[in-house]
Amino acid sequence: MTAHAASTARALDTRPARPPAMPANVLTIALRELRDAVRSRWFLLYTLAFAALGLGVSYVSALGSGGAGLSGFGRTTAGLVNLVLLVVPLMALTAGAGSIASDRERGILAYLLAQPVSRFEVLLGKYFGLAGALLACLCLGVGACALVLALKGEATRPAAMLWLVGLAFGLSLGMLSLGMLVSVLARRASVAVGTAIFLWLALVFVSDLGLMAGALAFRLRIETLFALATANPLQVFKFWSLHSADATLDVLGPAGLYAVDTFGDHVVWLFTSVLAAWAVVPLAIAAVIFSRRAPV
C-alpha cells in the first residue's frame, strides 16, 4: 500500500505510445453498447414481443393451412413481413434515438469523450453495438418462428426465413441510423424517443396512407407512385421480401409489374441502394453534427 502508483502501473501492461486505432476503439465501444443493450429492458421487451408475435403469426397460419403443406408467399410470410414492418422500425428507431441523447443527459457521454476516443468512434461503436443487439433480436425471433413452423409441418421455404432476417436487419440498420440522427439532434432523451415514435408513425402509416389517398384522389401515375413508395425503406423491405420469395413483384399489381418491366432483375440494386442510403446518409449527417456539438 505504500507505492500505489507503482502498483497501478504494475497491474497494467506497459503504456502504448499512441491510443488504440479506430477499429479497436469502435469494437470496444460496440461491445460495450451491445452488452448494455442486451441487458436493458427494451431489448428484453422487444425480443419477447417480436418472438411472441411471430410465434403467434406462425402458429395461427399453420393452423389455418390445415397442413396443406404448400409454400408460397402465404399468410405466414406475409404476417411476418407485416410484423417486421411494425416492430423492427420502432425498435431500431427508439434504440437509436435513446443512445446518444440519454447518455448525454446522464453525463455518460461527456465522461466517455474525455477518454482518448474520437467522436466518430463513439458514434460508430454505438451504431454497431446496437445493430448487433437488433440482429440478435431478429435472429432469436425469426429462428423461434422457423422452428415452430417446422414442427407444425408448415413448408415455408427455409430461404425465405433467412431473407426475412437479412432484409429486416437491413431495414433496421436504416432505422437505427435515422434514430441516431434524431438522438444527436435532440437535447433530451425523452424528446429524442418521442421524435423517433413520431417518425415511426410517419413511415409506417402516414406515408402509405397518404400515397393511397394520392392514388385514389389524384390518380397518381404508376411510376410516380412506385418512386414515392420506394423512397420509404419500409416499402423497400417489403418489396424485396416479396422479390426474394418469388423473384417477381407482380403480386403488387400494376405498380409491381411496372417495376418488373422497368428494372427487371436490376430492381435488387435499386433496393440495395435505397436501403444502403438510409443506413449511411442519416448516420453521416449525425456524425457531422455530433462532431460539432458539445456532448453536455
Partner: peptide
C-alpha cells in the same frame, strides 16, 4: 469529473476493463 457518469448497471471491474481497453491497455 465532478460526478462520475457511468451506466449504473455497469460492474465496477467491468468499468475498469472497459476504460483500460479504450486506452489500449489490457488489465
Amino acid at each position: 469529473p465532478q460526478e462520475l457518469g457511468f451506466h449504473d448497471e455497469l460492474g465496477v471491474a467491468e468499468a475498469v476493463r472497459y476504460f483500460a481497453l479504450l486506452r489500449g491497455l489490457r488489465v
